[in-house]
Amino acid sequence: MSEPQWQKSSFSGAPDQNCLYVAPAPDKTIRLRESDTPDVILATAPKGLAALLRHLKSPG
């Protein structure tokens, strides 16, 4: 399997801060990892990630 093409989130801070990275996977899932623990990778369906982001953006 090829190495994921990680992209830093546009909401991440300066290079010396913890950053969130995302990458598409061959099985049509989205992979997520943090810069402070790059070996821990979460996988989610695009619809699941979209639902999470909508929830986080919604007013309290």
Rank of each mutant, 00 (worst) to 15 (best):
M1Y: 08
M1W: 02
M1I: 00
M1H: 02
E3I: 07
E3W: 09
E3C: 09
E3P: 04
P4A: 03
P4K: 02
Q5G: 14
Q5P: 07
Q5W: 07
W6G: 02
W6S: 01
Q7P: 01
Q7W: 04
K8A: 06
S9P: 15
F11H: 11
F11M: 11
S12C: 03
S12L: 09
S12K: 14
G13L: 13
A14R: 01
A14E: 04
D16W: 08
Q17E: 11
N18W: 02
N18H: 13
C19Q: 10
L20M: 13
Y21R: 06
Y21P: 05
Y21M: 06
V22D: 01
V22W: 09
A23E: 00
A23L: 09
A23G: 00
P24F: 08
P24M: 10
A25S: 12
A25K: 06
A25M: 15
D27K: 13
D27P: 04
K28E: 14
K28F: 13
T29R: 14
I30F: 00
I30K: 00
R31V: 03
R31S: 04
L32N: 00
R33T: 05
E34H: 12
E34D: 04
E34M: 10
S35H: 07
D36R: 08
D36Y: 02
D36Q: 14
T37A: 08
T37E: 04
T37D: 12
P38C: 12
P38D: 02
D39Q: 12
D39F: 06
D39G: 07
D39V: 05
V40M: 06
V40S: 07
A43H: 05
A43D: 04
A43R: 04
A45V: 10
A45H: 10
A45Y: 06
P46S: 12
K47G: 09
L49D: 07
A51C: 13
A51V: 02
A51Q: 01
L52A: 07
L52W: 08
L52Y: 15
H55Q: 09
H55R: 10
H55F: 06
H55S: 10
L56T: 02
L56D: 15
K57L: 03
S58Q: 01
P59A: 09
G60A: 10
